[in-house]
Simulated scan of single mutants.
Amino acid sequence: MPNSTTVTDFLLTRFSEVWEDRVLHTMLFLLIYLATLMGNFLIVTVTTLDKKLHIPMFFFLRNLSALDMCYISVTIPKACVIFLPENTAISMAGCAAQIFFLLWFAYIELVLLTVMAWDRYVAICQPLHYSVIMNPWLCVQMTLAALLSGVGSAGFHTGNTFRLPFCQSNVVHPFFCDMPFLLKLSCSDTLSNEISLFIFAVVIDGGCFAFITMSYIHIFSTVLKFPTRGERGKAFSTCVPHILVVTIFLSSAVAVYMKPTSSSPTIQDMITSVFYSIVPPFLNPIIYSLRNKQIKEAVRKMMSRKLYLGKP
């Protein structure tokens, strides 16, 4: 597209133009999407119906699962739409909406993962004060604060991006609209955008990562003092998967968002973007349902109740 032409819509990029690969990618993404929806919906249902799971830890897990169903719905349905047809266009408004919701849900995801680390810290390091510190009203307040502050953050960055003129190219490199890749398409100075993005990353992402790291340093120092190996193993089994999700989520997002806008997008950038937009929502139900005895027991009780009621 020549420099004099103003962009009115964008063209998303597929992983491959080979038809067989496109069909394979569509099937793979659909399977991931359905598995993510089913896994997270199961956690939401179980933690809502089982009153024994009405504690702060599962309150945040329920919110995380509900969020993940929304988070993964921002990217995969549109990706599946562009993988098969020849038309890969997305409107300017659609692109803006995709960026807004991606930033909003990613922000809440990070805050919830941080709060869950603090919840584990209080449960393991200050068990006698757990019910007082993690009271229901505080849990609701923290969740609402994450939702509302996320709206402001996503709105600011989305508006700051779409105030720029796009008149060089309309080809967005990944399979969804994402702010770093969109900045590369602007024909004006994006320094202020990069500075605001860097400050946000340092303050929010860096702050959350530091908080999570400190929480787990205290957790591990306490766990190592447990008298039996079984207690240590139980504590580690609840913490290590959480660290894994946080590491994948933050490292992949930083790799894309902190990359200079002057550098050209690559297939590695597209693959990396999968790790912060799709992998965390997909992994969370697997990690928290398969490795949590209370969740598994609640699922068994729910299934046995359904089978019993279904008998003639």
Rank of each mutant, 00 (worst) to 15 (best):
T48L: 12
L49W: 04
H54P: 03
H54S: 00
F58M: 06
F58D: 04
F59E: 01
F59S: 05
F59V: 00
F59D: 00
F60C: 00
F60H: 11
L61E: 02
R62M: 06
R62G: 02
R62C: 03
N63K: 11
N63R: 08
L64A: 09
L64S: 07
A66N: 05
D68K: 05
D68G: 09
M69E: 01
S73L: 13
P77L: 08
C80N: 08
V81R: 09
V81Q: 10
V81G: 00
V81N: 07
V81M: 10
L84I: 14
L84N: 10
L84S: 02
L84Y: 13
E86C: 14
N87D: 10
I90E: 05
I90T: 09
A93I: 09
A93R: 13
A96R: 10
A97I: 04
Q98E: 12
I99Q: 08
L102E: 11
L102W: 00
L102S: 12
W104P: 04
A106G: 09
Y107R: 09
Y107F: 14
E109G: 11
L112Y: 15
L113H: 08
V115L: 12
M116K: 11
M116E: 12
W118Y: 13
W118I: 14
Y121S: 05
A123E: 14
I124S: 13
Q126Y: 02
P127L: 12
H129M: 12
H129A: 09
Y130E: 08
S131N: 10
S131T: 13
I133N: 06
I133A: 03
I133F: 13
N135V: 04
P136C: 05
P136V: 04
P136A: 04
W137H: 07
C139Y: 06
M142C: 11
M142G: 02
T143D: 03
A145T: 07
A146I: 09
L147Q: 09
L147D: 01
G150E: 01
G150K: 15
V151F: 14
V151K: 05
G152S: 07
H157F: 15
H157L: 15
T158C: 14
T161C: 11
T161W: 07
